[in-house]
Every structure is written in C-alpha cells, then in structure tokens.
Write a protein that binds this DNA or RNA. Structure first.
Lengths: 223, 223
DNA sequence: ACCTGAACACCGTTCAAGT
DNA sequence: ACCTGAACACCGTTCAAGT
C-alpha cells in the first residue's frame, strides 16, 4: 500500500494531512469559519484546491480533523490524581470549553462534526470512567457525558458568537447585545427589563461555572 | 412611508415577508438547511433571487425570522396555571426542544441566529418571571435561562444530527453511530466499550429529560 | 413600487492530463 | 505519485433597467 501517507519516493510532497490541518487551523484563527474555504486553504499552501482532496475526501472531513485536533490533551490535562469525581468532571468540562475557545469559531467547528478520533473518544472515556469509579450507574455516566458536552458546546457557541469582531458597528459592544437591550427596554418584558445588566453581561466564565455547577450539583443529589 | 409592507397600490405583490417565511420553512422541512438557498426559495415563489432582498436584507435576516417563527407559542404553551417553578421551567424547556424538532435542522437554524422578536423574548421573559416569582435572585434567574437554553440547543443539535437521513449508507442506523461503535470496539476505551448500548442509544427524549432533570435538580438544591 | 436580467466575486468537487 | 488546469454546477448579493 502506497497511500499518500507513505514517504514520497519521487517528488517530495508539498502537502500532507498534518500540514494541511495546521494551515487550516491557522486560517481559521485569522479569518473565521465563514472564510475557511478549500480554495483559501490551498492558496495558503501554494497548491490548487483540487490537490487537497488527495488528503481529505471532503471539506467535512477536514473540519472533523480540525475538531479532533482542538481536543488534544484535554483528557490528559484534566487528570486530577487526588480529586473526587466532581472535581474531575469539572476539570474535564472546563478543559473542553477552553479547548474550543482556543480557536476562533472553535465551538461552531466542533458542533458541526462528529470525530471518532482518540482525543474526543479519550475525553469521553475519561469522563465516563471517572463516574463509574465513583459508583454511578453505567447509563447515568454516559448520559451525564452527553449532557455536559451538549451544555458546553451550546454555551461556547453563544460565547464565541457574542465575542465576535462585529465587522460593522460603531464601538466596543456587540451589536446583538445592543439590539437586545433596545428591544427589551421598549417592549413588554418586565422581568428581562429588571435584569438587563445580567442579560447583556459578558461574564461568560461565570455563566459557564453557574451552569456546570447546576449539572454537577444535580448529579451529586442523585448519588 | 410606503415600505414593502404597505398595501400595494399598483400591481399586487407576489412577494411579502410572511409568504417568503412560509416558503422558506417549507423548503427547510423538505430539503434541509444545506439546500436552503436564496435562489431556491425564490424559485419556489417564481421570482428571481434578487427580489427577496426587498423583504430581507440578507439571508441571515431570513434565517433569524425563521428561528423567531419556530418559537411561536412556546411561552404560551408552557403556561401551567397551578404549577410550581420547576414544573414551569420544565414545560418551557420541553416546549423549546419540541419547537426546534418540529422543523428539519431547526436547532441549527436557531443556533445560528439571535432573534429579538416577541416569541424568543417572550419565552425568555416567561422563564425569568417564573424564577423571580419563586424567589430566586435576579441574576440567577437570567443565568438559569441561558443555561437551560444553551443545553437545549446543544442537545437538539445532536439529536437532529443523529436522526438525519444519512444520504448514503446501507440501512436503518446512523452512519455516525456505526462509526462510533466500530471505533470504540477496536480501541482503548474500556469504559465506553462497557456502555456501548447507551453510547449509541437513540432514546433522545430520555437523554433530554436526564439533563433537564440535573439542571432543575441543581436549581432546587440552590434554593 | 416591484421585479427582472445580468453581472460580480465567489463556492465544493471531479478528473483528465501532465511531470 | 502528486499536482495542475479546467470544468461543472452551483452560491449570496447588487443594481441598472423595465413595467
């Protein structure tokens, strides 16, 4: 078998999976997901767009590899040797959020893919393992994994959407937040009106910790 | 002011916001978000694509209007006159999931937009109001709203991704689930391996109830 | 006022042909 | 074996011009 991954005998290949992945992640950070096209990735490497298809069958495959790459080290980084189950789960969830935040539109990339690579599955196995060792039933451990992961993706999606450059707009704040504040102020929303500061707050770490605390607290109550 | 919303004096308009919205949601259900293009929406109404821009400034605006429309009646439908706060929040979250599930790729559409329309803000106000009336602090009420909404979006995103047609593939099951089962079976994932049935389960109602239960449980403990 | 026609500047993907 | 060149079948958006 002489696949694209074997050492080149003839010309040295200008392309390979690893370099393409690196280039794509770099372009993502500089330009965002909407500007991440196969043509632009190829251009960064001085090849034609079609050449990429020797290493990734589709753009979706490239995005999946990017998501997998983002999760590198998250499972390992959350190894708290002396921690109890709640500390381990908290560390894993925080590590996931941090990993997604580390790349522009990281949550959007992750949400749009389903990697079965070692980083994502290693994360899942570590999470489920921590719960099983703490005595949780098997099916609860898996459901808790999905719940925490879905919450973390949902939260980080919002967080990165709120922190976006805004392209147009006058100054500092998010255009979405401004529109929200205006509409709430002029509309029949008594409760939201009373809580506008929290509603338009950009303290996402606190919001994440609040939600994660509810989940871990709910798990503790079940035990 | 004679905007596109005023009654036409000359030719009767073949287009308007409401009809375009209806057509777009119908096309979404039949073809999915990836096939929802301005050109195809226009084609369904026998106009040129450019004509749509008299009613929606961008495709993003159309998507936002679609998301807002999907949430119609959710706040009202969750009015449990005799219910306590936990029942009211549960009904709201279930209503949101149901509303997103009611349209193909509904969660993806919702996740990609930030409506400040009456359905979305009414939902938010009702949620926060239920918590304030139960005696929760204001900032906790808003954080709980975001947490439940983010979890619900994250969950439903996964649910709709798993239930997709799969385009190719041999029979019944999801291709993602099959790939997951194979990789886990052949890899170093002892905990996931022990829980493969739950890991590849398609019992999403149960998974949603589990996560929602954790959140409500966590809120109850805080009170 | 409302829509057409046509353009502009792009996309993902395929594949014969070159080296 | 690896990449080019060129094509295919599309996109979102704009805007002068028609009716």
């Amino acid at each position: 078998m002489s696949s694209p991954s074997s050492p080149a005998r003839g010309r040295p290949a200008r392309l390979d999976r690893a370099r393409t992945l690196e280039t794509a992640l770099d372009l993502l950070d500089r330009s965002g997901l909407d500007a991440l096209t196969m043509r632009r990735v190829a251009q960064e490497m001085d090849v034609q767009a079609g050449a990429l298809y020797r290493y990734f069958a589709t753009k979706q495959d490239l995005l999946t590899a990017m998501a997998e790459r983002m999760m590198e080290g998250v499972a390992e980084g959350a190894e708290a040797p002396g921690g109890d189950w709640s500390e381990r789960l908290t560390a894993l969830a925080r590590g996931m959020r941090t990993a997604l935040l580390a790349h522009r539109d990281g949550a959007r990339v992750f949400a749009g893919t389903h990697s079965t690579g070692k980083n994502v599955l290693g994360f899942a196995d570590t999470f489920v393992g921590a719960m099983r060792e703490a005595g949780f039933p098997d099916d609860e451990a898996v459901r808790a994994l999905y719940t925490v992961a879905n919450f973390t993706v949902g939260h980080t999606l919002e967080e990165q959407a709120a922190l976006q450059p805004e392209h147009g707009g006058s100054d500092g704040g998010s255009a979405d937040a401004d529109a929200l504040a205006e509409t709430v102020s002029n509309g029949p929303y008594p409760h939201l009106k009373a809580d506008l500061p929290t509603l338009t707050s950009t303290d996402f770490p606190r919001l994440f910790e609040f939600g994660l605390g509810l989940l871990i607290g709910g798990l503790g109550a079940r035990r």
